[in-house]
Structure formats: C-alpha cells, structure tokens
Design a protein around this nucleic acid. Structure first.
Length: 438
RNA sequence: GCCGGGAUGGUGUAGCCUGGUAGCAUCGGGGACUGUGGAUCCCCUCGCCCGAGUUCGAAUCUCGGUCCCGGCCCCA
C-alpha cells in the first residue's frame, strides 16, 4: 500500500526507539563531556575535495555526491573527522592547546546495507589537538571506554597498537606499508597469508606469529620485548610510547589487549592506535576506532592530534534492545468532562507543567471510560478528573493509576501540591518508572 | 560488486509446495455502558512489494525490478 518508501539503507525511528537512542546518546555525551570535551558541529554536506584529500578519489564510489545548482561538487559527509579538521584549520587553530572537542552527527555512505551498516548512520567522536603525550593518548582511549561504559554495553574488546611500530616491522622487509595485500593479511591476522607474502622462512613465521596475536594488557611488556628481539632495528620509541600508554589505560567494562596488528586504513595515523569491537555484532563488529595522527600532508598545516570515531548505531545494535530508560518526569493525564471543565483545563494543565511535571490533556472529548486506557497507554502515572461536581466544589480529583488511590485537591493549591514540599508530593511518590524496550 | 533467505491490513502471522470466495491475532475507530473505568462482548476501517508473462482464472507458477534480513568484499 505504501506509495512512498524510505530510501534504501535509511531508517525511521518511532517514539520508543527515539527515547532509547536519546537516552544512550545523552549518557555517552555526558561521559565525554566529563573529560572536558566541548561539542562542535559542522555541515551535513561538504565539498568533495575535502574527502578526496583525506581518503583518495576512489572514495567517491562509496559516498553520496552530486553537483549543486552552482556546479559545485558536493558530498554528503561520510565521516566527521575530516570536516572537524577542516573546521579546526580554518577557524580553531589559534585556540588554547590542548583543544578538546567532540561531535555527534549523521553521516552517509553509499554501501550495501547489512547488520550494523546503514546508508545513514550516526557517529560520535572526539579530537584532542595539541600534543601526544602518553597521558593524552591514554585519555582519549579512556574517554572512549567511558563512553561505552555509560551506554551500558558490556564485553567489548579494546585493542591497542602502534602504527609506527607496525610500519617499522614492515620496513624490515622493505615494504613500508605499501603492500596492500600484506596490510589486509595483517589486519585479518591471517598468519599463513603473511608468511606467503613475506616469502616464507623462519623469521617470517616468527613475525607472523607475533603480529597475529592479541595480548592481554598484563602481558604487554613481555610481548613487546619478544617483538623487539625478533625484529632488529625496530622503532624503539614506538615501543616505549605504546608501553607507557598501556600503563595509563583505566580498565572499564571491556577487556583490554595489546594488538600490534592494528592497521587502521589511513596513512596519517602514525602513533598509538586503537580499535574497539563488540563481538556480539559479527561481521560489522567494530564499534570504535582511533589513534594519534599528523595531518600536515593533508591540510597543509602542522597538527598533532588524537581522536576516535564511534559507531553510535552499532552500539545500539550491540545493546540488543535492552535499553533501560529512566523517565523522571511525573506524568498527569487530565480529563475535563463537560464544557465548563474544558474551559479551565488548559489553565490547569499549565499549572501542572509549570510545576515541572508533564500534563497530557484529553483533547478528544472521550468519555472517562475511553480516556482511561488512553491514559494508561500514554505512560501517565496520574489521572486528573474534572467534571461538574469537581468544579462546583472547586477541586480536582487525582487518581494514582498504579495504586488506584484517589485524592482531592483544591484547584488553587494544585500548583503547590505537586512541587517538592507540597501536600501531594510525598503522596505522589512512586514516580520513577523503568521501561524496557523490545 | 558477489552469494543465500525473504516481502500478505499499522504490527505479528496462516494460505504458496498441489492456481479457484485472502483467514487469525493485535492495534485503531465505534457501540453495549450518562463519572471510577485497565475486563468482557458486538460492529467497522484497512492488505497479497512493483511490473511483465503463463492461464478461463495468479497471493500461489515463470522472468525482471525494488526493498528487507543475513553472509562475503570493502570499510575513511
């Protein structure tokens, strides 16, 4: 029947789902803000060259791009790091350092949708700009862990590695990370594939084995020593940095590992890098990735930064619909019966709203029998009844829908009654409701 | 870009193999019932993803498309 349909890979969110999404969103924002990061926002569309500069021209195959009426090449942003860096270089570069900023917004990619992958999706992330001390590096990782912890997600895996470490291993074979097949094999931890590409031999086997493992954080020193021993001339500063960062990571709800094989797709990552997976997600299990970068090549200015991007939708998929939402507002459902009651109902409703409560007005003119189920469905805790009797006596009847207890209050005292200290406040106590969706 | 499985009122489903009046539940609207009700009963609205083909006749069979779900590829 539907004549109009959603574009492929997009979603509508109903009231219950939006409540869940907003609830998680605000918890995660809160976690990031608690580290001192402040929100910024950039346009939904940008000039194509911004993303081409960052990711190469082949990226156009995977994004929404078009010419606008002025003939400009425009794309819907496929990610937020590049716009944020553009903003930084054009207007924020003289801000006091370090600069701590974060963002949350929708992004668009023209890809085949599947579980945890949509054509419109939401990304949250932050950038720390100004230096790359071990404390700063660990702060960014700790912020990502805190954000995920605040969402209620459990069992995620944080893997921390180092881009320069990996490339110095590759340099040992004169490869310098340019060999795409090798990078893919490393990323997949395909031991056999790595050995084949490196040309076999005992050394190749040893390196492949070392790189294809993740090491519990407690074992990282031993593991790094083993790698250092196996690969002569390895970047020892990278080893030192990674080791220091690992000491400073504060464990949260997830497990922490050292993983030397994190490639991150981009050339400009050159320091500590990390990824976070939610194993429950399957193919699209990565929910967060980031690290330290230098952007001098792309943007022409020099900048040392650390950041991460986090797939908000995947966090929600990983939570699996078990999203507790606390709704602290007391909700009243006001049923005016008759013309006189209708005339004063909006004013009564306003009084209630000004008292910090929510008031849903029965606007359909339904009988109380019809209004009651509507009130129950609306999530209201209290029914307010106003009919001729009540008006004649100057009162309003309030029924607690959970206890079925009913009390009467003078209309003039309603505002005082429902706020803290009022006669109804203690009586109307049972106000925090936990909703489980799904 | 590749490979599977799907699509029936708003939602969830039966019917499909074996072509012949599209059924059930729920939600929504109304009523039984003029203000203490969340119950029960009755009535009503709304549907075979789109297009072509085969056929006397297609939800059902065939082909193409669209979209959804999952798995690859990719993943900034």
């Amino acid at each position: 029947m539907a004549e109009f349909t959603r574009p492929r890979g997009t979603r509508d969110f109903g009231p219950d789902e939006m409540r869940s999404r907003r609830s998680i969103e605000s918890k995660m924002r809160g976690a990031i803000e608690s580290f001192g990061y402040r929100e910024i926002s950039t346009p939904t569309f940008e000039h194509s060259d911004l993303f081409i500069a960052r990711s190469g021209p082949q990226i156009l195959d995977q994004i929404y791009n078009f010419l606008d009426k002025g003939g400009r090449e425009i794309v819907l942003r496929p990610e937020l790091t590049a716009p944020v860096m553009r903003f930084y270089f054009s207007e924020l570069r003289n801000s006091p350092k370090p600069l701590r900023i974060y963002y949350f917004g929708n992004c668009f990619r023209y890809e085949r949708p599947q579980k945890g992958r949509y054509r419109e999706f939401w990304q949250m992330g932050l950038e720390y700009i100004g230096n790359r001390t071990p404390l700063a590096l660990s702060e960014v990782i700790n912020a990502s862990i805190s954000a995920l912890d605040s969402s209620g997600l459990e069992g995620f895996k944080v893997r921390i590695g180092h881009a320069a470490l990996l490339s110095s291993i590759l340099e040992r074979w004169g490869l310098k990370g340019k060999d795409k097949d090798l990078m893919i094999a490393i990323d997949k931890k395909d031991e056999k594939g790595i050995i084949d590409i490196l040309g076999g031999g005992e050394e190749a086997e040893n390196v492949s084995r070392l790189v294809s493992r993740t090491y519990p954080i407690a074992d990282h020193k031993k593991a790094l020593e083993a790698i250092m021993k196996e690969v002569p001339g390895i970047d020892e500063r990278a080893i030192k940095e990674l080791s220091e960062v690992l000491e400073l990571v504060v464990p949260g709800g997830g497990e922490i590992y050292m993983d030397p094989a994190i490639t991150r797709g981009l050339d400009y990552y050159d320091g500590t890098v990390f990824e976070i997976d939610a194993p429950s997600l399957g193919a699209e299990k990565q929910i967060c990735g980031g690290g330290a970068y230098s952007l001098s090549e792309v943007f022409g200015g020099e900048v040392e930064g650390i950041g991460f991007g986090l797939g908000f939708d995947r966090v929600l998929v990983a939570l699996g619909g078990n999203i507790p939402v606390t709704d602290p507002a007391r909700v009243f459902y006001l049923v005016p019966m008759g013309e006189k009651a209708s005339l004063i109902a909006p004013g009564i409703a306003r009084t209630i709203r000004e008292g910090g409560c929510r008031c849903i007005l029965e606007t359909s003119g339904r009988s109380i029998k019809k209004a009651l189920p509507a009130a129950l469905n609306s999530g209201a805790g209290y029914l307010l009844l106003m009919g001729d009797d009540e008006i004649a006596r100057g009162i309003v009847a309030i029924k607690d829908l959970s206890t079925k207890e009913q009390v009467e209050v003078q209309v003039g005292e309603l505002g005082h009654a429902i706020v803290p200290g009022g006669v109804l406040f203690d009586r109307i106590r049972n106000i925090n409701e936990n909703y489980i969706n799904g």
